[in-house]
Structure formats: C-alpha cells, structure tokens
C-alpha cells in the first residue's frame, strides 16, 4: 500500500513538474494542480497510512486512531490551494487579456524598449 501511494505521489509530481515547465499559463495552472495533489497526499501520508482507523474518538474503550495532525494541516492546505489556483487563474486571465498571449516567459526584449539604460547596457555587454 505504501508503495503504491508513494509511486502515485511520484507520478503526480513528475506530471506536475513537466507541466509547469511548459510555456503557457494554462499548462502551468494544471501542473500546479497536479503538484497540489502530490503535496497534499505526501503531507497526509507523512503521518503513516492506516485503514479503518479514522481519528474520530470512539466511545468504546481504547481504540487505535490514525495520526490526526497531518490531516488537519492538509485540510486547510486543500482549501488554501484552491484560493491560490483562483488567484493564479485570475492573473493568467488578466495577463492574457492585456498582452494577447498567455505565454509565461517575458520575451527577450530589445534594449531600446527598456527605459533602464544601465540594465540594458549590462545585458548587451
């Protein structure tokens, strides 16, 4: 079980990293979503895996429970990652509408367009 969770985390991470290395904003957003899954599952699993031991206190004596702390941390992480995705989407949308493209890299600029002469000089030399 541990092996398949770990490998799933690895596959999600690999997919996420590949996508955030793409050149368009949408791919990066999808990649970050994959990475969020990977990170959340990773954090959750750091408490150890267990089946049928939810951290809901039982009335009947000394039951065993899984580690509740990573769950609490991941719960807020899931909600926050939604907020982050939403902000990213909005920024990507704004950038697309302003710049007519959803490329994420600033194109190599020509020195004349740059008002900062020193910086341009530094780059040219």
């Amino acid at each position: 079980m541990e092996l398949i969770v770990a490998s799933a985390v690895g596959v999600l991470t690999a997919g996420g990293v590949y996508l955030i290395l793409r050149l368009r904003a949408f791919a990066v957003i999808i990649g970050l979503a994959l990475l969020s899954y990977a990170v959340n599952v990773f954090l959750f699993s750091s408490g150890g895996l267990s089946v049928n031991l939810p951290p809901i206190l039982s009335k009947y004596g000394d039951a065993a429970y899984t580690d509740p702390l990573p769950q609490a941390l991941v719960l807020t992480a899931i909600v926050i990652s939604f907020g982050m995705t939403a902000v990213l989407v909005m920024i990507a949308l704004g950038a697309y509408l302003e710049a007519d493209t959803d490329r994420i890299n600033i194109p190599a600029e020509d020195p004349d367009a740059d008002g900062d002469a020193d910086a341009a000089e530094g780059r040219a030399s």
Binding site: E2, A6, V9, G10, T13, A14, V17, L21, G48, L69
Partner: peptide, 26 residues
C-alpha cells in the same frame, strides 16, 4: 523537461516511501 520531471518524481516518491516506512516522533 521530461528528464527533470522524472527525476523529481522519483525523488519525491522515494522520499515519501522512506517517510511512510518509519515511525516519527509526533
């Protein structure tokens, strides 16, 4: 990019596996 991603995936998987197989102070 594929190589970088694969390396990242394998590392994270290994880290995650190593983590799960050990008890930690909690």
């Amino acid at each position: 990019d594929g190589l970088i991603a694969a390396a990242a995936g394998i590392s994270v998987a290994a880290l995650s596996f190593a983590f799960m197989m050990r008890d930690v102070e909690t």
